[in-house]
């Protein structure tokens, strides 16, 4: 890794990352803040129970709202945060490689005595550091809001942190294949399109799979099968096993990307 390049890239991506952090942190604080009024509302769970099962699964409220943890996991991690991270990962993975190759500024980095492997690892580090920062700040904001902003409701902090770690890992894996696409592309727009296409397909398979029992098989083709925040926070998934396999696939995806990038022709 080249530290000067890493710092320069972090600086140029800083605004984007800060924007995502601001959006995610503000939203999680907001929904934690309004939790007491929802929890106190009589008949809310009855109303949820009246919805069709598929619908309940989709909005992350299979069993209604029983705790603050359930509520945060279903309402924030299952929906908005997922979209925020998807957008960040797709955009940034395209920017750190394909854009530099497409525009030609990659030529300047490779015209210094830094190997392609070193440059690619640095760019991957920028992508993952940004992701870690967004998830990290959101975790802290969530914990802080639940501790200080509301009274009488407890967030299960160890489970909450574990869920965040898995959120980071699942999006690292997504970042992994997006980074691969970005590393092999000459065209920025094409890389963006393919990454977004694959990820949206996964997302749609996930939605369709949750709708009814007949479509449940579709879940098996989606990476989001491993990402079920409500189950995660309630310890209903084997977090260690999932975490390990996600880490390994992330590592393999990035490694393959770097190797392919090392051996390809660059139109610089």
């Amino acid at each position: 890794m080249s530290l000067p390049l890493f710092l320069a890239m972090m600086k140029s991506h800083g605004k984007l990352i800060a924007g995502f952090i601001y959006g995610a942190a503000a939203y999680i604080v907001l929904i934690i803040w309004i939790y007491p009024s929802i929890a106190d509302m009589k008949g809310f769970n009855d109303m949820i129970a009246a919805l069709p099962e598929g619908m309940r699964k989709l909005i992350g409220m299979e069993n209604g709202i029983n705790s603050l943890s359930d509520y945060v996991a279903g309402e924030f991690y299952g929906m908005l945060f997922l979209i925020i991270l998807m957008v960040y990962v797709i955009l940034t993975s395209t920017r750190v490689m394909a854009r530099l190759i497409d525009q030609g500024s990659m030529a300047y980095m490779l015209a210094t005595p830094n190997s392609r492997v070193k440059v690619a690892i640095t760019q991957a580090a920028v992508l993952l550091t940004g992701l870690a920062l967004i998830v990290g700040f959101t975790t802290l904001s969530g914990i802080a809001a639940s501790e200080w902003l509301i009274q009488g409701y407890q967030l299960d902090i160890p489970s909450f942190i574990r869920m965040n770690v898995l959120t980071f890992l699942i999006f690292s894996t997504i970042a992994g294949y997006c980074f691969f696409i970005s590393s092999v592309s000459n065209d920025e727009k094409k890389a963006l399109g393919i990454s977004a296409g694959i990820t949206l397909l996964f997302y749609m398979l996930n939605m369709a799979g949750k709708l009814s029992e007949k479509t449940e098989w579709m879940l098996n083709f989606s990476i989001f099968k491993w990402y079920d925040p409500v189950k995660l926070i309630n310890n209903e998934m084997d977090a260690i096993w999932i975490g390990c396999s996600l880490s390994i696939s992330t590592f393999l995806l990035f490694m393959v990307s770097v190797i392919v990038f090392k051996n390809r022709n660059l139109p610089l």
């Binding site: 030609g104 490779l110 005595p113 830094n114 190997s115 610089l268």
Partner: peptide, 13 residues
């Protein structure tokens, strides 16, 4: 040896 060559090379694209 692309990276090592760059130590002694200046390039203008």
């Amino acid at each position: 040896n692309a990276a090592r060559i760059q130590e002694q090379t200046g390039y203008l694209p």
